[in-house]
Amino acid sequence: MMKGSPLSGRDSKNPNQTTINVTDGTLIPLKDEGSLLSAWNISFFGAVALLVILPLFSPDPYLRILSFVPDGLVATFSVTLISIFFALLIGLFAGLGRISQKLFINRIATVYVEVIRGIPLLVQLFYIYYALGPLLRLKGPPAAILAMSICYGAYMAEIFRAGMQAIPKGQMEAALALGMSRSMAMRKIIIPQTIRIILPPIGNEFIALLKDSSLVSILAVSDLLRRGREYASTSFRYFESYTIIALIYLVMTLFFSRLVGMMEERLRHRGKVH
């Protein structure tokens, strides 16, 4: 899993140098890509059309595959949503730790981020399921959720850290001058503004997590990919099964990428208005 910096823009050390943000999320459609032949429209509606046409013209096996995988789709979304929730909680506290003035807390948060980001998600899944699973009595979905929450929590921590550091320092100083404690200022002033800044990067991470959730199929979790593998292994229709699975993933990721793009545009518009 390869990630870029959580927030892009101008380099704080060199204002004339533009930083480039590269992530493993899907391409977020731009506002000016509104033509019918835009890349997003071709990809999304092409995938949807194939999901409709293939079962109509070839019910066996495509319609059977589509009727076989819905419960796997539910499992995929369940693991993704629960994991992103806990990853946000972990990321918030780890992000606060990363900017903490207390050396001990800062070091713990920094070590967590560096260690977790240095280990591939697949290795973490195996480690928690096979090494820690028997000790913690974790099986299937709980082990997958724990691994993905810990892994993505490290990336969320960097997003929160970058977002909080993007808030002008004068706001914290003004809050302290008004008699607020540092924790109260963070809770009532800094974090609410940070949430608005980091919403688009969090959306990107959600898309990446949705795709990476396919890895949990190796942990006996009946997600979308595993259901496709089960059908393929019993029918020997590997091409057809993985074609449908790939198209479903493509539709989901492109759909959420459009939502993230709309959210970015709305936030950008609000910033101009205010």
Rank of each mutant, 00 (worst) to 15 (best):
G4E: 08
S5G: 05
S8R: 12
R10T: 08
R10P: 00
K13A: 13
P15I: 07
T18W: 14
V22I: 14
D24F: 07
K31T: 08
L37C: 12
L37T: 08
I42M: 15
F44D: 06
L56F: 10
D60C: 00
I65T: 06
V74D: 14
A75V: 13
T80G: 06
I82C: 02
S83C: 01
F86T: 00
F86S: 01
A87I: 00
G91M: 01
A94P: 05
G97W: 02
P134G: 10
I145Q: 03
A157W: 04
F160T: 00
R161I: 04
A162Q: 01
M164K: 03
Q165Y: 05
Q171F: 10
A185C: 11
A185K: 07
M186G: 06
R187C: 05
Q193I: 01
T194M: 09
I198V: 14
I202P: 01
G203T: 06
G203P: 07
E205S: 15
L209I: 02
L210Y: 07
L219I: 03
A220I: 00
L224N: 04
L225N: 05
R227C: 01
Y231F: 15
T234R: 15
F236M: 12
R237V: 01
F239M: 14
S241R: 07
I248S: 02
F255D: 05
R258Y: 12
L259R: 11
G261Y: 11
E265Y: 12
K272D: 07
